[in-house]
Design a protein around this nucleic acid. Structure first.
Lengths: 229, 229
DNA sequence: GTCTATAGGGGGATAGAC
DNA sequence: GTCTATCCCCCTATAGAC
């Protein structure tokens, strides 16, 4: 059950990055806390950026695989048109489940991941983006089929809002404490988060849209007004 | 029209913090870009943390005043029960309007503010929290009155989701590009964001809740079961 | 109010011994 | 694979001249 130097570095770095952010966590802090030598990070990961990428690789890739697996199951059950709430659960569920995995560090990683969506660091952006493209490519058409009344751009915005709400929940923001003002959220209530979040998101993404109905656009040209082809 | 050293530092710091984050922006970078001396930050703001607080003070306080002003107007128009969509617009509007103020740096600040909700830095958390408490204290009862069917804890979560979606939108996340995959969002469409966001949030916050209906709680005591008073 | 100079502490990365 | 030692950089904060 001996844990390798590499794994110890990953675990400790995940914890410190999660608690203080990437920029504010030094390699010295990581190697000290892990009880390994400073040079070990460069040996195993090449650089601090390499370590950051490895951390996302280790947890985000399996999480996204799980999302795709659940989508495939839904496609087998429902065919092309999947109920919206089921799509949301397939997308949101793996993240929230990982966040309950306190002992194995999953919770720490999820906090890190939530923040990474708004992180300015290019390294972090690139890592998350490269591992999330496939998920978007698969889920977006599925949502589109489930929400045929939503015009294309509106759908993009709705998905944007959905990802944003999830990212915020993942980040474990302290603002919840401000809103709840002392009210302690029980662990058992934390388990209701998937239900609460799905109810909110499903209603939001299916909201009636005031988007003007698709009109034939008019083009003004050379003195006369005519419908564009 | 001469801009004081203090204002130049604030403007440049806002821009650099917005682009690279707090931890990754040094005082040297700020003072160089502002064309002022390194020691000027410490003279005018005491420390880097003091500068951070001053930046939030300058923009967040007026923005929150505006939110409260709009809430007061709504209370005069509607009394205690204000339509949910109006409450959302009063809360979200000032932030989105500030984000369109490109020339005066408002847009940069809003990106910064959006990220600050998930920022691990204690200084940032404390600054935002101290300037947002009053807004929460005033809006929460208004939402509660507008949504009497929502049980207390459910309301906290719904507000949490609302703040999260807004924070994500403010942060100007790059993920929108991934979702839209090359589709360019026109400035005119950007102006529709308040409408889109309000539709999404209003539907989400009013979603039917599967929360067990309020039952008379039963108290087990001294051998008999009876409804609690 | 604004500057220079410097104190005093980390930062990431790497060469080379073991 | 792991260590020590070190290079050379940047960091914030402050003392004291102007």
């Amino acid at each position: 059950m001996a844990q390798s130097t590499k794994d110890r570095i990953l675990d400790v770095a995940e914890q410190l990055f999660s608690g203080h952010g990437f920029g504010a966590t030094s390699m010295r802090a990581i190697t000290n806390a892990a009880g390994v030598n400073l040079a070990a990070v460069n040996y195993h990961f090449g650089s601090k950026d390499g370590l950051v990428r490895a951390i996302f690789e280790r947890r985000l890739s399996p999480m996204n695989e799980e999302r795709l697996r659940r989508l495939r199951i839904l496609e087998q059950e429902h065919g092309a048109v999947i109920p919206v709430a089921e799509l949301i659960k397939a997308f949101v569920g793996p993240a929230l489940e990982l966040s309950r995995d306190e002992s194995a560090g999953g919770a720490r990683f999820v906090r890190l991941l939530g923040r990474s969506y708004t992180e300015p660091s290019e390294t972090v952006q690139a890592a998350v983006r490269s591992m999330s493209g496939q998920v978007i490519d698969r889920f977006k058409p599925a949502f589109s089929a489930a929400l045929p009344e939503l015009e294309g751009e509106e759908l993009c915005w709705r998905l944007h809002f959905l990802v944003g709400t999830l990212a915020y929940c993942m980040s474990g923001s302290n603002m919840m404490r401000l809103i709840a003002s002392g009210r302690i959220t029980e662990p058992t209530e934390q388990e209701r988060l998937l239900i609460r979040l799905t109810e909110f998101l499903a209603a939001g993404i299916q909201a009636p849209s005031s988007e003007e109905p698709v009109r034939t656009p008019f083009v003004v040209a050379a003195g006369h007004v005519r419908p564009s082809s």
